[in-house]
Amino acid sequence: MVVKQHTPQQNKIIGYTYNLTLTAPPEVQQLAYYAGLGEDNSMGFGFLEELKS
């Protein structure tokens, strides 16, 4: 992903997708789901999706 493309502040960001198991109280799980995990959450990074098996 490129942020501020075609400007002097242009920055390339590398993202990853992986599966994880979150073991935490329901309140913490809800916070992680709605707020995301990691850096740059306001830009959409840290997104979590529940996978049902």
Rank of each mutant, 00 (worst) to 15 (best):
Met1Val: 13
Met1Ile: 11
Met1Trp: 10
Val2Asp: 01
Val2Ser: 10
Val3Lys: 02
Lys4His: 13
Lys4Arg: 15
Gln5Thr: 04
Gln5Ser: 14
Gln5Phe: 06
Gln5Tyr: 10
His6Glu: 09
His6Met: 06
His6Cys: 06
His6Pro: 02
His6Gln: 05
His6Ser: 10
His6Ala: 07
Thr7Glu: 00
Thr7Trp: 00
Pro8Ile: 08
Pro8Lys: 09
Pro8Gly: 03
Gln9Ser: 05
Gln9Pro: 04
Gln9Lys: 14
Gln9Ala: 05
Gln9Asn: 07
Gln9Ile: 10
Gln10Phe: 02
Gln10Val: 02
Gln10Tyr: 00
Asn11Glu: 08
Asn11Pro: 01
Asn11Gly: 08
Asn11Phe: 12
Asn11Leu: 12
Asn11Asp: 04
Lys12Phe: 14
Lys12Val: 05
Lys12Ser: 08
Ile13Arg: 02
Ile13Tyr: 07
Ile13Thr: 01
Ile14Asp: 09
Ile14Thr: 10
Ile14Leu: 10
Ile14Trp: 13
Gly15Cys: 11
Gly15Asp: 04
Gly15Lys: 12
Tyr16Lys: 13
Tyr16Phe: 14
Thr17Trp: 11
Tyr18Thr: 05
Tyr18Arg: 03
Tyr18Phe: 12
Asn19Ile: 09
Asn19Pro: 03
Asn19Met: 07
Leu20Asp: 05
Leu20Gly: 04
Thr21Phe: 08
Thr21Arg: 11
Thr21Leu: 10
Thr21Val: 14
Leu22Glu: 07
Leu22Arg: 06
Leu22Met: 12
Leu22Val: 13
Thr23Cys: 12
Thr23Ala: 14
Ala24Glu: 07
Ala24Phe: 06
Ala24Gln: 06
Ala24Ile: 02
Ala24Leu: 07
Ala24Cys: 07
Ala24Met: 04
Pro25Asn: 03
Pro25Ser: 02
Pro25Ile: 00
Pro25Leu: 02
Pro25Val: 00
Pro26Ser: 01
Pro26Asp: 00
Pro26Cys: 02
Pro26Tyr: 00
Glu27Cys: 04
Glu27Ile: 07
Val28Asp: 14
Gln29Ala: 05
Gln29Tyr: 01
Gln30Ala: 07
Gln30Met: 04
Gln30Gly: 02
Gln30Asn: 08
Gln30Asp: 11
Gln30Glu: 10
Leu31Met: 01
Leu31Ile: 05
Leu31Val: 05
Leu31Gly: 01
Ala32Pro: 00
Ala32Asn: 01
Ala32Gln: 03
Tyr33Glu: 05
Tyr34Phe: 09
Ala35Trp: 07
Gly36Ile: 01
Gly36Lys: 01
Gly36Phe: 05
Leu37Trp: 12
Leu37Arg: 12
Gly38Phe: 02
Glu39Lys: 14
Glu39Ser: 14
Glu39Asp: 10
Asp40Arg: 15
Asp40Ala: 15
Ser42Met: 07
Ser42Cys: 09
Gly44Gln: 04
Gly44Phe: 01
Gly44Lys: 02
Gly44Cys: 03
Phe45Pro: 08
Phe45Ile: 01
Gly46Leu: 02
Gly46Asp: 05
Gly46Ser: 04
Gly46Gln: 05
Phe47Trp: 10
Phe47Thr: 09
Phe47Val: 11
Phe47Glu: 14
Leu48Arg: 06
Leu48Gln: 05
Leu48Lys: 06
Glu49Lys: 15
Glu50Leu: 15
Glu50Asn: 13
Glu50Gly: 09
Glu50Ala: 14
Glu50His: 15
Glu50Gln: 15
Glu50Trp: 15
Leu51Lys: 15
Leu51Pro: 06
Leu51Met: 09
Leu51Ser: 11
Lys52Thr: 13
Lys52Gln: 15
Lys52Gly: 04
Ser53Ala: 11
